[in-house]
Write a protein that binds this DNA or RNA. Structure first.
Length: 301
DNA sequence: AGTTGTCAAGCTAGT
DNA sequence: ACTAGCTTGACAACT
């Protein structure tokens, strides 16, 4: 089991997800920002290594406007060596990598223009991982999408859209259960038709589910990950107290987390902590795991 | 330096 | 037909 956190490190002074407004786009500005973001990504990975964190989600803002028509700058070529070096570091230290395109990327949208933009954005994500020369255990996670008044039609549309994607995207794509529309059972239905691995989101699962025991869900999800995909990825968060249902917690809730560790016995997976205080929770989780060694899967070193 | 409005992009529920 | 909320941080324009 590797422990990870998404995109941002708040202990370091650098920011790896700097961006700017479309209005202020220049190729110089873009180049500076990419340079900054790649340098900071290197620093974050080094920090993680020093703290025993071997799982990381790279920010979608790494290359601002990468899939936007305004961006004609050949960042792939210009920063080829940067990507290559970061990739070597990742591989040398056996770091697991994921990416998570944001809410605007929707494969099952009825709108052709939205679909095309989504494909372009996915291609950018795949390109980043390819430039780092990472194998297919580096994943891009996506929700199934919207309902549009007809869930089974929308699931079919997802499947049809997935089937026409480029192989470079397909081999990295995994789907994640969301907090209001598509539960694990729905994802399994998509998996049956597409063989897409399912990334289990524990927090979302507590919000919509079909009352399946956790171990059954973990077992189902496990079988969707082939050898080439690596061990399953799981997202973990908990409810922020006294807030709208679905809000992610500020800090790791050690009681809930410990219970989750016990309940998820004996499964092994790489765990992404979607907690607002990011790397602090990851370090905290490692401490909790190490203090209850008998109950938890072997920790990656 | 601090505050506030705004940002490329979507979906859903509510009016 | 339109808007707020989701979740979210940070840019950018303003005091």
């Amino acid at each position: 089991m590797k422990i990870g956190y998404p995109c941002i490190n708040r202990s370091l002074s650098c920011k790896g997800n700097r961006t700017f407004r479309l209005r202020s786009y220049t190729k110089e500005r873009l180049q500076q920002t990419i340079q900054n973001n790649l340098d900071c990504l290197s620093q974050i990975l080094r920090y993680n290594l020093d703290h025993g964190i071997f799982f990381f989600r790279i920010s979608s803002d790494l290359i601002p406007f990468a899939s936007h028509p305004i961006c004609t700058f050949p960042w792939q070529r210009t920063f080829h060596n940067h990507f290559s070096k970061i990739g070597q570091f990742i591989k040398r230290h056996d770091i697991r990598i994921s990416m998570h395109p944001d809410q605007f990327i929707v494969l099952n949208t009825p709108r052709e223009d939205v679909f095309q933009r989504s494909v372009a954005e996915l291609a950018y994500h795949a390109e980043v991982l390819d430039l780092m020369e990472l194998d297919t255990t580096a994943k891009i996670q996506l929700h199934v999408g919207g309902i549009y008044g007809d869930k089974s039609q929308s699931i079919k549309r997802f499947i049809n859209r997935f089937n026409v994607l480029d192989a470079s995207i397909k081999r990295r794509l995994v789907i994640e259960n969301d907090e209001k529309s598509y539960a694990i059972q729905d994802c399994l239905q998509v998996h049956d038709k597409t063989s897409i691995p399912i990334l289990f989101d524990y927090f979302h699962h507590t919000l919509i589910n079909n009352h399946e025991p956790l171990v059954d869900v973990l077992e189902h999800c496990r079988t969707t990950w082939m050898k080439k995909d690596g061990i399953p990825m799981v997202d973990y968060s908990s409810q922020k107290p006294h807030n709208t249902r679905g809000t992610h917690a500020e800090h790791l809730d050690s009681y809930d987390f410990t219970r989750f560790l016990h309940q998820s016995q004996p499964f092994d997976f790489d765990l992404m902590l979607e907690i607002k205080d990011k790397e602090l929770s990851a370090v905290n989780a490692l401490k909790i795991i190490q203090s209850t060694p008998r109950f938890i899967p072997p920790l990656h070193r």
